[in-house]
Structure formats: structure tokens, C-alpha cells
């Protein structure tokens, strides 16, 4: 009997430690506002989670910056599977959050449902404009094809084997814009280049990313662009071991492999999250679509340029100006891309 009691106590201790860890994770980002009224902003990630080293992580960093600098109360919930989107949004609604930021197109349906049921709450969604006409939803769009195009220019000019690779996490019209931009950039810079393409069908499978990199290296690639969240970290690791170039995505990923990250196609989700939280606090939040592109520095090539040769840096700067002035239009849909380059993008 004594032993049984002791085992119950042990299990109880375990449960207590567990719950202690759990709540630590959720509450850590909360900061209280001492001036003016306290605004509460919640962020729901997609399945990549807040440590994907790119998209979600960068969003959270932006929001946390807003929390620190503006005294906004911020919090986040990670989605482990697609089934978590609705409950996570619901949790924030029940806790009476003023603005809920949904990270990524995968949250489209969950966001629409919540926004329709709660017309008085504000929502923001990144990478989706299907709710542009709803009065309480702000759609935040990025012209990621532009930064991917610049990365493509770098890859096309720097490749020695005339073979480059592209690894995508999962496909939808937003993710494919990375591909369209990158492919156009590579082919505009080097019309002889061959582009290998793999759909890893996961944003979390690091081992699959590494195997994809080995696969491409064996087939001759010497530069690989990855738009695949945590799977992409495996791609970078694979590139590092074979000592070829990798191109980062969303944030400046050069710190992950300083000698092997050629450049990164940045998507400043952090700025977008900061801006929208600020608007929410000031009460100037508007529905409709906000677009971030090269002109307002919402997308760009990474500031770390040590691995690029001088003439490539120059070519990228020139291209940037041409895109800004409208001289070059980067294709961002299947139709626009195939009209110019033919049906060579197989992932859509």
C-alpha cells in the first residue's frame, strides 16, 4: 500500500512539473502596459512552429518587438497540426484578445470562420487575400516572387555546374511564387541553367531536407534554394556537408552556415507583424489588403553579402532598381510564368 501511495506521489510530481513547463511557454511573452490602454495581440503559428528559423519565428520576433517597444500585451500559440488552428484562435477569442494574427495561408478557413462569427474582433492574416472584403480582416501580402527573383539572379550567375536546385516545403499559390520568382531569376541570369526541383511535402522533416540536398548534389547542383521551414534547415545542413551553396529564405539565415549561405530571400514578416500591432494600439487598423514589396522593403535580399562576388552584388542592385521602376515584372502566377518561360515548373 505504501508503495502504491509513493508511486501516485511520483506520478503527481511528474504531472506538476509538466504543467509547470507548459504554462511557462505560453505566458512568457506577456508584458503589461503601464501607460494608456492595454491592447492584447495574439499570434497563431502554422505547423512550422516558432522555432522554424524563418517564417513563424520571424513573425513572433516582430510581435515581441512590438510588445517591448510599445507596451502591447502579446502572446502566441503554436499549432502542432492543421487541426489546432481553430482551437488556438478560439482560445484567444475567449481570452478577449483585440487582434489575432494568423500566420500563413493554411489558416485561411479557420480565420474566415472565426471572423464571420466574431464581427467585433479584428483579425490579420498573412499570405491570404481571399478575405479582403471582410470588414474585420486585414490581409497582409508579400511580393515574395521579387526577393526570390533576386536570389535566382545570384544563383544563375554564381553556379559553376550550370545546375541549381529548389526545395519547397508544401505547395500552394503563395509558396509557388517563390518558385516562379526563383526560376525566372535563374533563367534570366543564365539561360543554360538546369533547375532541379523537389517537393519535400513537409515543413518539419529535417532528415528529408538533408536527403533532398544529397539527391540534388549527386545530380550536379551546386546551389540550392530552399523555401521549406524546418525541412529547409536540413537542406542547409546537407549543403554544408557537401560544401556547396544554399540560399536562405524569409530571414537572413547566414548565421546558420556562414560559409555556405550564399544569400537569403527575405520576407519581412516581422515588420508586418510589428506594424499591424502598432496600428491596433493606435486604433488605425484597416481592413483590406496591405502589400509588402521591394519598394517598401517588405521583401529584399539579405544584408549579409560576403559570399557574393562584387559583380553579382552589382547585378542584383541593378535588377532591384529595374523591378522598382517597373522595367522588370516578376511573374507570380502559373499563367504569367508559363507565358514567358514555358511549362518547366513542375511543382504546381
Amino acid at each position: 500500500m505504501k508503495k502504491r501511495l509513493l508511486s501516485y506521489i511520483l506520478v503527481l510530481t511528474m504531472v506538476l512539473i509538466m504543467t509547470a513547463c507548459g504554462s511557462d511557454k505560453e505566458k512568457e511573452t506577456t508584458s503589461t502596459n503601464t501607460t494608456g490602454k492595454s491592447v492584447k495581440v495574439g499570434l497563431v503559428t502554422d505547423v512550422g512552429g516558432v522555432n522554424d528559423g524563418s517564417f513563424n519565428q520571424s513573425s513572433l520576433e516582430g510581435l515581441q518587438r512590438a510588445g517591448k517597444e510599445l507596451g502591447i500585451q502579446v502572446n502566441y500559440l503554436e499549432s502542432k497540426t492543421d487541426a489546432d488552428y481553430k482551437p488556438n484562435i478560439q482560445t484567444f477569442l475567449e481570452d478577449d484578445y483585440d487582434l489575432i494574427i494568423c500566420i500563413g495561408k493554411w489558416l485561411e478557413d479557420a480565420t474566415r470562420e472565426a471572423a464571420e462569427d466574431n464581427p467585433k474582433k479584428k483579425f490579420a492574416i498573412i499570405d491570404d487575400m481571399s478575405m479582403a472584403d471582410m470588414p474585420n480582416v486585414t490581409s497582409i501580402m508579400f511580393e515574395q516572387s521579387q526577393s526570390a527573383y533576386l536570389a535566382g539572379i545570384a544563383a544563375g550567375k554564381m553556379t559553376k555546374t550550370n545546375t541549381v536546385g529548389f526545395v519547397i516545403g508544401r505547395t500552394n499559390e503563395i509558396m509557388n511564387q517563390f518558385g516562379y520568382g526563383y526560376f525566372s531569376g535563374v533563367l534570366d541570369a543564365n539561360s543554360n541553367a538546369k533547375i532541379l526541383q523537389i517537393n519535400a511535402n513537409s515543413f518539419t522533416d529535417t532528415a528529408a531536407g538533408k536527403s533532398a540536398a544529397v539527391n540534388m548534389v549527386t545530380n550536379g547542383a551546386d546551389i540550392i534554394f530552399q523555401a521549406a521551414g524546418a525541412t529547409g534547415l536540413g537542406v542547409i545542413e546537407g549543403c554544408k556537408e557537401s560544401n556547396i551553396w544554399a540560399i536562405g529564405v524569409d530571414s537572413d539565415q547566414s548565421s546558420l552556415a556562414p560559409k555556405n549561405i550564399l544569400t537569403s530571400a527575405m520576407k519581412r514578416v516581422d515588420n508586418a507583424c510589428y506594424d499591424i500591432a502598432k496600428c491596433c494600439q493606435e486604433g488605425t487598423i484597416k481592413s483590406g489588403v496591405i502589400t509588402y514589396d521591394l519598394k517598401n522593403q517588405g521583401v529584399d535580399i539579405a544584408p549579409t553579402k560576403t559570399n557574393l562576388t562584387d559583380d553579382v552584388v552589382k547585378a542584383i542592385e541593378e535588377t532591384k532598381q529595374k523591378i522598382k521602376s517597373g522595367e522588370i515584372t516578376v511573374p507570380k502566377t502559373k499563367k504569367e510564368f508559363e507565358k514567358k518561360y514555358g511549362d518547366i515548373y513542375e511543382l504546381d
Partner: peptide, 20 residues
């Protein structure tokens, strides 16, 4: 199986959902 998965993903000729 994961090796075959990697190779089958090449060039996206097979639906990635089937490969998974």
C-alpha cells in the same frame, strides 16, 4: 522507405501526398 520517398520526390512526377 524514406530513401524511396526521397528519390520519388525528384521532379514531382508523383503526387507528394502519395509519396508520403
Amino acid at each position: 522507405c524514406s530513401g524511396i520517398k526521397t528519390l520519388a520526390a525528384n521532379g514531382n512526377y508523383v503526387s507528394p501526398d502519395l509519396i508520403s
